[in-house]
Write a protein that binds this DNA or RNA. Structure first.
Length: 292
DNA sequence: CCGACCGCCTGCCTGC
DNA sequence: TGCAGGCAGGCGGTCG
């Protein structure tokens, strides 16, 4: 499932319930997800107040009044759902009644405001861990690249990041140590919007005579654009991914290349066909005519 | 240091 | 209809 727009959608869905609430109970229903849960996971969360719910790249960060930070990653198939009692609906939070737990419901947070947050993850590629308050120095975060929606990403920054790189452009965009938060879908979509081939060498977008190329500037712009539009649409729902209120995001209907192998290119004047190739073991979708 | 590849899990879709 | 095989949004680790 989740790339940056989906994680941001989840953050926005959870924040009204989670932020400001005190965790009154944690049911950890198995010893591990992708990694083992931290020692005394439930005990270290119980009784703590969630001060804020933030996002860094594809990570959710719940800052606790204990000074610890609950770090959550959804992997490929993780999702949260919010359940409440009909008598005590939290203002602004979609009502979904309590339901029986399923086999892939791995963590249940019960909150002081009456809300319950259930983490479900069939493939268990997600994980939860606890960090000190200086999350940015945690090993998982220390090498993370720039936040794509932040002011730090522009043509100049991209050009610097790609300087001297002989990697494929597609691979460079997926490299979380360069830009943090892009995944396979939005990289395909951004490259299409920028008319850039995923097979291009990343270094060809580097600085020339100390100035970023127009291509680098355009790529930075369309990355922000596609991510923003996807967040606006509530993310993408592939397979069965849902938002925290159970609703589907609908940005998948706006995909122009992802999953569209064999379809005609949407650029009316092009006449080309979307192709699927495999790069670094991942599917890439692109138009070989528009994208150079 | 870098890139290529593997493995972690389950579920869904396709094609025979 | 049934089943085997392929494929999936991520990411850390290993190997050359």
């Amino acid at each position: 499932m989740p790339e940056l727009p989906e994680v941001e959608t989840v953050r926005r869905g959870l924040a009204p319930v989670f932020a400001g609430a005190t965790i009154v109970r944690v049911d950890q229903r198995r010893p591990d997800l992708r990694f083992p849960f931290p020692e005394n996971f439930a005990a270290r969360l119980t009784g703590k107040r969630v001060e804020s719910l933030e996002r860094r790249a594809k990570y959710l960060l719940a800052r606790l009044d204990s000074g610890e930070v609950l770090v959550m990653h959804l992997g490929m198939s993780g999702s949260f759902r919010i359940e409440q009692d009909a008598e005590t609906i939290i203002p602004g939070v979609f009502f979904r009644p309590r339901s029986a737990l399923g086999p892939h419901d791995h963590v249940v947070f019960s909150l002081s405001n009456g809300g319950t947050i259930v983490y479900n993850d069939p493939r268990r590629f997600g994980f939860m861990l606890l960090s000190g308050s200086d999350v940015e120095n945690h090993p998982l975060f220390r090498n993370l690249g720039v936040e794509p929606l932040g002011a730090d990403l522009d043509g100049r920054a991209l050009a610097r990041l790609f300087a001297g790189k002989t990697t494929l452009l597609k691979a460079a965009l997926l490299d979380q140590t360069l830009i943090a938060g892009l995944g396979n879908i939005y990289v395909c979509e951004a490259l299409f919007r920028a008319n850039l081939s995923p097979r291009r060498v990343a270094g060809t977008l580097a600085l020339r005579d100390g100035r970023p190329s127009a291509k680098a500037g355009l790529l930075a712009d369309v990355i922000k654009q596609v991510l923003s539009e996807a967040i606006e649409a509530g993310g993408s729902s592939l397979r069965d991914h849902r938002q925290t209120d159970g609703n589907l995001g609908y940005f998948q209907h706006s995909f122009k290349v992802y999953g569209r192998a064999g379809d005609p290119c949407v650029n009316a004047t092009c006449g080309g066909t979307i192709e699927r190739i495999v790069q670094n073991g991942r599917s890439t979708f692109y138009c070989g005519r528009c994208q150079r």
